[in-house]
């Protein structure tokens, strides 16, 4: 009896230790950014490619208001409603006091400066593939933006999803930095892959999710229902998206579809970002989309 008991205790300790190891936040190597010189002008390109303003500015913001990243937009999900935090340059309400390494930990590992897990509604499952140079450049650009004192609001997430340690398990299962589309890619297609899979985080909406909220990579960009909302995210694999490369490029510039309808919903916000990119980047995105495996 005592032997069984001590075996059980040992198992429990092992289980807890495994849980602790698996769920522990993993910051980046502190030397990751050593020697990188920030380029704020390029950081602006990273900013638009990353779509930061689409979630962190007011949804109806235009012009200069797009650069006031005070947060507050609500994102419904099966796990609760998440509220975009203030990431303006305010030192207390926003992220004005962050170092480039803080931003690298947030974007590449989903870890806050205090060492806790972020919810993956912040699309670090995509940003994890961003280059350290782009993170450093983005940090420099964000520092040029206005400060706003609006405090971040707490997420409305119930038990058990309110236990952030569980997110360590989520990351263990779903935080991957391999490219989804492999094989030989041209330079343009590879640039498009970086824009779609990493910065643009297109898969976060256009790829369906499993019961635990992980992207189903076997159905990469194949669309699905909007979680906690109405409607569907469209399938943008070549199986359904039959637009030409110039059609896609124009859509990402002006929002006009081939029949001169225009983007609505959250995609209208995305086009406000892609319109800021160089034409070559919009074309790279289109070239990549033609290389994505078709999924019905």
């Amino acid at each position: 009896m005592r032997r069984i008991l001590s075996a059980l205790v040992l198992l429990a300790v092992l289980g807890l230790a495994t849980f602790w190891v698996v769920t522990r936040p993993r910051p980046v190597d502190p030397g990751l950014l050593a020697g990188l010189v920030p380029d704020a002008a390029h950081g602006e390109q990273v900013f638009w490619a990353g779509g930061c303003a689409a979630c962190h500015a007011d949804a109806d913001a235009t012009g200069a208001a797009k650069l006031v990243l005070k947060g507050g937009q609500r994102f419904a999900s099966p796990f609760g409603t998440f509220l975009a935090p203030n990431i303006s340059n305010d030192a207390t309400a926003g992220i004005g006091a962050w170092t480039a390494l803080d931003l690298a930990n947030a974007m590449l590992r989903g870890v806050s400066p205090e060492g806790s897990h972020y919810y993956p509604v912040f699309p670090y499952a995509s940003y994890a593939k961003a280059t350290p140079q782009d993170v450093v450049d983005l940090r420099a650009f964000l520092a040029t933006l206005p400060a706003d004192p609006t405090p971040s609001q707490p997420h409305e997430v119930g038990f058990p999803f309110s236990i952030r340690a569980l997110l360590g398990g989520w990351k263990f299962l779903f935080l991957k930095t391999d490219w989804v589309v492999g094989g030989e890619l041209s330079q343009e297609e590879a640039r498009g892959r970086y824009l779609v899979e990493a910065l643009g985080h297109c898969g976060e909406c256009h790829t369906p999710r499993n019961a635990l909220g992980g992207m189903r990579l076997g159905r990469w960009l194949a669309g699905g229902p909007v979680p906690g909302g109405q409607g569907n995210f469209p399938n943008i694999t070549p199986a359904k998206l039959d637009w030409t490369v110039p059609d896609i490029v124009e859509y990402l510039n002006s929002g006009f579809t081939p029949s001169f309808d225009s983007a609505g919903g959250h995609m209208a916000l995305v086009v406000q970002n892609t319109a800021h990119l160089p034409e070559s980047d919009r074309r790279a995105i289109a070239d990549y989309l033609k290389r994505v495996p078709p999924v019905e």
């Binding site: 235009t62 909007v226 409607g231 002006s254 929002g255 225009s262 983007a263 609505g264 086009v271 406000q272």
Partner: peptide, 17 residues
Amino acid sequence: GVGAACGGCHKEYRKPD
């Protein structure tokens, strides 16, 4: 610019597909 005006209104006032 025209596309932004179209999209701005569609974003706000058109039922999602």
